[in-house]
Write a protein that binds this DNA or RNA. Structure first.
Lengths: 242, 242
DNA sequence: CTAGGTATAATTGTATGCAATCATACGATA
DNA sequence: TATCGTATGATTGCATACAATTATACCTAG
């Protein structure tokens, strides 16, 4: 995986609850826990070397993210994620990324615009060199700048969430063929539309960018639902297990 | 308030945690807790007559909904909701309701379509009679049918969530002037577009319907952010407080 | 042999205790 | 007087104990 770390994990990374949450989410999205599988508090707790309390708190959050369903007094059941979910999310994202680009056009600061330009410029360089990790970082960063620039807490929260989600089921999308270069060209167009204060064009370009990304991902089989491959293991590092 | 109950509260209503969650969310959205106010576990717990455990679990969920921010080892702080949040949500919703209508056109069942027709027909009657509560129920139900009909877990989850959200800050939007009638006319047009299998038109109509609803709400000052008025009190009914 | 019921086990829901962390106040020192 | 350090209190993080609920197994009656 790349060395890019989202600035804020959805929940804090250093509490037990946060680590349980992130681990379980990763395990669900990566397919370790199968659809409809029951998650038992004590079992999870023992596996991770923690008590039921942080496990329960993590469950509550996973439920709100739609990854598990909790039936009161019965149990927590994995909801999994299907290929259709991924497709739907990309379609939803394509609309929202468009809206985001439009709003960003109206609200972006000079500093943010400059960072966008620098991002595109740098990505051009790394694309030519085939530096995949850096490309992935810059891609993530590009979108996050727009999320911030759109000046909407609500939209930013949604998009950050979806982006997170997608990162987990996506293999290195940019690593194949010329998509890295093409993707960055699309970034450049978006950036220039924003620079020109052409919100409508920015919206349309961002919209298409997302659809292209999805098409490319599907066409090349670059995403998994339940891969079972040795993804980054998200171990509970730094804690002694009794 | 109307006698309409969302089929599923976001979290179950009869556990202590669920009641704490719903109560806190309502109190935040209704303005009982002001922006940046700190929520203390013991204080909330004592107020509601429960221990810290269910309060903590409710906090975790409220954090994910963006209503509070939890700073590890420090505390939970209310994020509140601003007029801009409401506006943004309506703009986001207008896009997603459009997408929902389009997808619903492709996936709606005969039974669902029939319920839509019945809904519009009935609403016409109640509109002429000025039955506000029934109008509100039918309005909610109309949208929920579409949420189900769109055949997308992801989109449904988002829209149900936003709808819930909006219900809390909205006074009786349909109660004024002729909006009830007009709104139902828009519903009819959407329904007919879906019946005609014209997804594009359904999308556009649903999109505009939402923008109209927002405009009407704002123009008439029919929503509140921090009202302090005697909203339904969402008491923790059915539990003895020691 | 099956249906129903009861006892028992397993699991979740809640409360509480203890440890860790953070805020505050007070005092010592420059 | 200002600043740093320490002590104390408040608050959260986690673990565990107990209560309530649900699932399972076994036994009995028909």
């Amino acid at each position: 995986m790349s060395n890019y770390d989202l600035k804020q994990e959805v929940t804090d990374k250093y509490s037990l609850r946060g680590r349980v949450f992130n681990k379980l989410r990763a395990d669900i999205l990566s397919g370790k826990y199968k659809d409809h599988e029951e998650l038992k508090e004590v079992a999870i707790g023992e596996e991770l070397g923690v008590s039921r309390t942080p496990v329960r708190e993590a469950f509550r959050q996973l439920e709100l993210e739609g990854l598990i369903q909790i039936i009161p007094n019965k149990g927590a059941y994995v909801t999994g994620i299907t290929a259709k979910d991924v497709q739907d999310i990309y379609m939803i994202r394509s609309l929202l990324e468009g809206l985001c680009a439009r709003w960003a056009t109206e609200h972006i600061t000079e500093a943010q615009l400059e960072e966008l330009e620098e991002n595109v410029y740098l990505a051009d360089f790394h694309a030519s060199k085939g530096h995949l990790d850096q490309m992935a970082d810059l891609d993530n960063r590009f979108h996050h700048i727009l999320y911030e620039a759109c000046n909407s807490r609500q939209l930013e929260r949604l998009l950050v969430d979806f982006h997170e989600y997608v990162l987990r089921v996506r293999k290195k999308t940019l690593s194949n063929g010329g998509r890295g270069k093409i993707s960055n060209d699309e970034h450049r167009q978006i950036m220039e539309a924003i620079k020109d204060k052409d919100g409508g064009r920015a919206e349309e370009l961002a919209h298409e960018h997302m659809i292209n990304a999805y098409d490319n991902m599907v066409k090349n089989g670059l995403y998994h639902i339940y891969p079972m491959e040795g993804e980054e293991s998200l171990e509970m590092e730094g804690r002694d297990k009794p």
